[in-house]
Design a protein around this nucleic acid. Structure first.
Lengths: 138, 138
DNA sequence: CCTATTGTTTGATGTCTTCAAGCATCGAGT
DNA sequence: ACTCGATGCTTGAAGACATCAAACAATAGG
């Protein structure tokens, strides 16, 4: 019979977990010569191309901020800008093949997180998945 | 009978959860006029005073970086530097009362996370606590 | 068309981050 | 006590991040 943690305790553990995961991500990104902002941007683009604006919304930053980040990613051939066919104001940003590989590599290299998840059983993974879905709905 | 998520799916959900939590934290900090680095520093100090070096280790950044962060926090009376009694090279950093209040307020204002956790039952909170402890051991 | 809005970029300013270099202090060994 | 290497902190330089205000082009709705 597990004792029930207080909400404050859970908040604290959550903060710790987030910090650990974030540090893991940042380290893996740094190994590839990327900052965490750059790597986060690649993560967003992993699913689908996005306009500058929608990137800014997703990453919760100013649009002008994205200009610099995409500039630096584009200079390294990790993404490319394409003028939208339907609205010439809009620039859609897409991963290049190099960019895809980069973000995949970063995920693989998140060792702390990987080994942490490996120490769960299938049932536990399913339960963690369910609980996280409740706490952080999409 | 829940279907078992792939490890990749769980990694992805974890990334989403971390992003959400982190954004929540950053927003709450910004409401208080603090950057996330400053707020993170206050969080570390919440438990106990720490030297510049140990702060740098905990926050996984260069020691010289801490100098600037603590400079700005000190300028706003959120922390204070005290020369160690046992080693005059060392400066111990401690929260002021204002600093304590600031970090407490930030925690209270993390609404997304709060309401997310509120939607769990006691048993679910205990289970989430347990699972996170396994995945991200201290 | 005219006008308000939207998407992006630019420039200014401040913060973050790292690196190399510097100074002060400590500690171990002589 | 003295030297010397290690340690703790700060400074300066350079690049990245972040936000704001302002500019510009293009769109959308009247």
């Amino acid at each position: 019979m597990p004792s029930i943690p207080s909400k404050a305790q859970l908040m604290e553990l959550l903060a710790h977990s987030v910090s650990t995961h974030y540090a893991d991500f940042t380290t893996a990104a740094a190994d590839m010569g990327l900052t965490s902002s750059q790597a986060k941007t690649l993560t967003v683009l992993r699913r689908a191309p996005a306009s500058m604006r929608s990137l800014a919304v997703t990453l919760a930053c100013d649009a002008s901020n994205m200009t610099g980040i995409i500039d630096r990613l584009e200079k390294r051939d990790l993404v490319r800008r394409e003028v939208s066919a339907t609205d010439r104001r809009v620039k859609n940003v897409a991963l290049t093949e190099t960019g895809e590989k980069a973000i995949d590599t970063i995920r693989e290299r998140m060792e702390q997180t990987q080994t942490g998840l490996d120490s769960l059983s299938d049932e536990e993974r399913a339960e963690l998945f369910r609980l996280l879905t409740v706490v952080f709905p999409r």
